[in-house]
Each structure stands twice: as structure tokens, then as C-alpha cells.
Amino acid sequence: MEKLGVNVSWLLAQLINFILILVILRLLVYKPVLNMLATRKQKIQESLEYADKVKADAALQQKDFERKLDDARREAQSTAASAQVAAEKERQRILAEAQEEAQKIKEAARGELDYERKQMVSELRQQVIDLSLLGAQRVIGANLDDKKSRQLVENFLNEVDFGAKAGA
């Protein structure tokens, strides 16, 4: 032991030195640094959690926003479609009305024409009767202006059916 240099005073000095360093390092380094490491770890954990939360929130908001946008788009689309349908209906209505009106006008015009023609035909008939009677008077030289001769011409005309050829 002596040859190896084992010596109680040196050994004690080394022991005291070790204990002193241990105590100083424990106070100065181990406790504060380990605390610091733990706090930092916790803080990073919290930060990460917070970031995750924010990310999730943002995603949620994004989804919400997209949904709203979709809704608006769909609504606009449906509004436009319904407007188109209404416009088409209106067009049809207007068209139908116009056609009806035109038909009416046409019919009215035809009625008037008929009436006028009938009028003309009856007038023509009167004149034909008058002329034929006049002609006959000249031929026979007598006054045929009585009811009987007039009836005769009338009947003749009816037989010829003058009106039938010109339309009723």
C-alpha cells in the first residue's frame, strides 16, 4: 500500500474534493440545468400542442368557408335557373297571347269581309232585280212594277242560285 502511494491524508483530500465538487455542481449545474431542460421540454410540448390546435382550427374554418362558398354557389345557380324558367314561361305566355290576338284580328277581319260581301250580294241582287224588271218593262211595254213580277224575278234568281257561286 505504501509503495502504491495510498496515503490517508491524500485519500481524504480526494474524498473532500469529490464531495465539494459534487455539492457545487449539484447546486450550480445539475439542478438548474435539469430544471431548465424540463421546463423547455414542457414548453416545446405546449407549443406543439398549441400549433396542432391552431392548425386544426384553421382546417375547420377552411372547411366551413368552403361549405359556405358551395352554398352560395349553389344558391346562385338555382336562382339563375329559376329565373330562366320564369323568363321562358313569360315568353311562352306573351307568344300565346300575341298569337291569340292575331287570330282574333284575323277572325274579326274575316267576319267583316263576309258581312260586307253578303251586303254586296244582297245589294247586287236588288239591283239585278231592278234592272231585269226595267228591261222586261221595256220589252213588254207595261208596268211590271208590282209585287207579283218582283216575286217572279226573285224566284228566278233563287233558281240560278247566284249566291251559291259567290259563296254564302
Binding site: 480526494q14 474534493n17 465538487i21 455542481l25 450550480l28 449545474v29 438548474p32 431548465m36 414548453k43
Partner: peptide, 23 residues
């Protein structure tokens, strides 16, 4: 050993004098 003591304690002292969150 005394030198080791001085170096170790000095290092410990300097490195932990102002502990900051961002080291």
C-alpha cells in the same frame, strides 16, 4: 486536482450564471 476543481467549478459557474430559455 486543485486545477481540475478550479476548471470544473469555473465552467459550472460561467455556464449557469445567466440561465436563459434560449441557451
Amino acid at each position: 486536482m486543485v486545477l481540475v476543481f478550479i476548471l470544473l467549478v469555473g465552467f459550472a459557474f460561467i455556464s449557469t450564471r445567466k440561465m436563459e430559455m434560449v441557451p
